[in-house]
Each structure stands twice: as C-alpha cells, then as structure tokens.
Design a protein around this nucleic acid. Structure first.
Lengths: 221, 221
DNA sequence: ATAAAAATTTAGACTAACCTAAATTTTTAG
DNA sequence: CTAAAAATTTAGGTTAGTCTAAATTTTTAT
C-alpha cells in the first residue's frame, strides 16, 4: 500500500510523461509537486525500491507497468469523484479539482466500483478526460489540440488540458462549453491565435495559450 | 487548520467524554487511538497550545468550546458520509465505518453542506446516531440503553453504541433492525441478559454485553 | 573541446507523530 | 498513613517527508 504522497508522485509522473516524450525530469516533478528537487530525489529512490518506477541517477524517471497501473487507478478515482461532485452535488466544473485531489486517496476498491455504478459508468469526467478502466487502462480518445488544427474545419470541443479555476471560468465567459461545435475561421500565423465561430453565429477569439489547452474532435470522424 | 491526526484525537476525546463523567484520561485515549500513553501526552500538549482542550498534567482532559465545535463538525461529516454510503451506494450498515473514517477528513465546508442537501438533510445516520448541526450542536435524542429498561415495556430500537462489523452482523442475524419494536419479556437478574419479543412473535435472547449497546425509545413518549 | 551553466544528488537537519524506558505523580490497599 | 500499584509524563530515539547548502554530473555555448 502506498502513502498519500507516493500516490501523488505516481500520478504526477504519469501526467508529465503523457505531456512529453521520454523520461520525466527531477526538476519538472519538483515544480509540479511544489517541493524541492532534493526532496524529489529522495522519493524517486523510494519508488524505485518499490519497483514502481525505472530510475537511473541523473537520467530521469519512467513508470513501471505496476506504477502505471497504480497511477491510472488514482486517476480513475479522481475523475469519478469529479463526476460525482458535478453531476450529483451540482458543483461547477471549475470548483471540483481540489476536492477530488483529496477524495482520490480514499482507499476502497468497492467504494470506487459502487460509485462508478451509481454514476452510470461515465466514460468522461466534467473536463472531458476519459476515465481509466478498473483494470488500469487509459481509453484512447483521438482528440487533437485546437492549436494544431487548420482553418475551415468544423470541430467539437471535447476536453481541456488545464483544470485551473481561472482557465475554466475564462472558457465559460467565452461561451466555450464542452461538446459545443465551432468552425475555425482563421489561424493567425503571427501569434498562433485562433478565431472560431459558434453555432449561434458568435465569433470567439482564442489565444494560442488557450488553444493549446483545448481538445477537439472532427464531428464526422 | 488541524491535521488528520489532531482531528482524530478531538473526535475521540468527544466520544469518550460522552460515555463517562468528568475528564478523559490519557490511558483511555491511548487505548482508543491504538497508540501509547506517551504519544497521547505529546498530542495533548499540542492541542492545549491550540486552545482546543483544557489540560492540566496528570488531571485528564476536556474539550474547550472551540474543540467541541470542531469535534462535532468531524462527527457531522462522518455521519453524513455514512448515510451516503448506505442510502446512495447501497453498502450495508456494518460496512461503512472504516470508509467514513477517511471521508470525514475531506476539507470543504461546501462539500458537506451540498452532501447534506443531496441526502435530504437526514437527521440520523445508518446506526441511529443523530447528525450534528452545521453550527456544531449535537441533537438530543432521549434514547436509553436497553440494558437499563425493565420488563413489560414495549420499546423501539433506535440506535447502537458499537459500530463494529461483528456487532452489527450479530444484530442482523438476530433479526434486530433499526426501528423495530420489541416487547421486553424478561430481564435476568443474574447475568442481566434480556429476552424480547419481536412484532412477528419471535423471541430473541440478548446478552448484557449486547443490550448495553442498544438504544431504545418508548414508542408512545 | 572545454568552461560555464543547469540539473541533479548527497549530506545534514527539521517537524509531526510515533516509540521505549525511566522518572514522576496520583491512587489505592492495607 | 504510607507503601505499592497504576497512571502519566519526560527523555531520548525513529520514520516519512520535507528543507538548505554543498558536491557532483550533465548539458550548453562558445
């Protein structure tokens, strides 16, 4: 059984590994966990002893199969609790991240599976993130970043890569809601900002900073 | 803000204080928290520094007003989560104590109040314990221990003082369910065991050990 | 190619919560 | 009333997770 802290490291390693190629660095982990690099090194030795990560000094870190399975269990719990908080308790999507950070560490297989059933076996959390399977597999979505699309295409907003309150409230104020369809009118080559048109006709300007945190789908495919 | 562990001490002090008169002893706390007396002393000094308990060396301990308010908030959270686990997720009353021990430490006022609303503002948890108010007040019930009743009276089973799986499953096997009405046929003066008759006619023998953990009501009063 | 910069690890220390063993205080029994 | 027993506290130590400062390794820039 892992501690609270160990679970957070596993989750963070998984998170960083999916957002880049290759090994995760000590400094990146220190920044994400709001600790110092020296503390990260201590923990990496401990996780390596437990065979949850592959770790060679100065070479960065990678999850083992077992480590990834555990990380995905924690992410599954996190996302199911987020669905609960939004669907059942009526929280907004920008309010639930902190609470789910605590709820994800409650230890009970049966609790998670009953919660899953109670929620109707949801496939996605309130931010559009897919919910890993009980066995610890992350479903593939095929979503692409809006920042990588070209003008002309109609796309559907399917998820976000950033969960902060500020970011999500910014989307709300821009009338960008999960599932909405937009047509890409223009991609500015200078600042990479994107201009899209909502179904109602409203045009929305999206900075590159925002666009690279938006995940979209081709509604047809 | 208190740590996990501090919250558990506050809750335990409250629990022990209601089950006896006067101050709570270091040894009693050590037994309940499954630690050693020396560790309890350390924590008592810390809680006294924070003004959450009244503490004089060698003289036992008592919650301050603020300490009691916090203890009751924790108990409120515990009991609301138990209602959720039983009413919404379908757990049995003998399965929920351990999970609620973890859930009670999730920090969010708004979460608790939304949960309360979602559950329909329940007054009692699945074991018949009253749920403290948001302000930190414990409702009075007027329940009495079955072990202190006399023969002849019809009484209603309203709560239990012991939450262990073994105890609760023993009640289930004896067909003693919360809310059921029984007539006290006999109280054995030698071993203080009680013989009761269920509405259906079945007679149940209840040992003193069990009877002193059962809370009952006079259905009329 | 190598010196400077950046990243990482090691060494040594801190805090919270626990422990054991010894010392002290309170309670109890005769 | 006092000696033994019980309860409690103190002293000193441990572990997990953190820190700072110094040492080491890797990367980068000329």
């Amino acid at each position: 059984m892992q501690s609270f802290t160990e679970e957070n490291y596993l989750k963070t390693i998984y998170y960083l590994a999916t957002r880049q190629q290759g090994e995760v660095s000590t400094n990146a982990l220190a920044e994400m966990t709001a600790t110092k690099a020296a503390s990260v090194t201590d923990m990496l030795r401990k996780l390596a002893d437990k065979q949850l990560i592959h770790y060679k000094k100065y070479q960065g870190v990678r999850l083992t199969e077992e480590g990834e399975r555990l990380a995905l269990q924690i992410i599954r719990r996190h996302r199911l609790w987020e669905v609960f908080l939004v669907d059942k308790l009526g929280f907004r999507w920008d309010q639930v991240h902190e609470m789910a950070e605590e709820l994800e560490h409650i230890r009970s297989e049966e609790l998670v599976e009953r919660l899953d059933t109670f929620l109707g076996h949801p496939q996605f959390d309130p931010h559009g993130d897919p919910i890993p399977t009980p066995a610890g597999q992350m479903p593939e979505t095929g979503y692409q970043k809006l920042s990588e699309m070209v003008a002309g295409e109609p796309v559907q907003l399917m998820g976000v890569l950033e969960h902060s309150t500020e970011f999500l409230q910014h989307l709300d104020r821009s009338n960008l809601t999960l599932g909405c369809t937009v047509v890409i009118r223009e991609v500015n080559t200078f600042d990479r900002s994107v201009q899209v048109q909502l179904v109602g006709g409203q045009t929305v300007f999206i900075s590159y900073e925002v666009a690279k945190n938006l995940l979209v789908n081709q509604p047809a495919g």
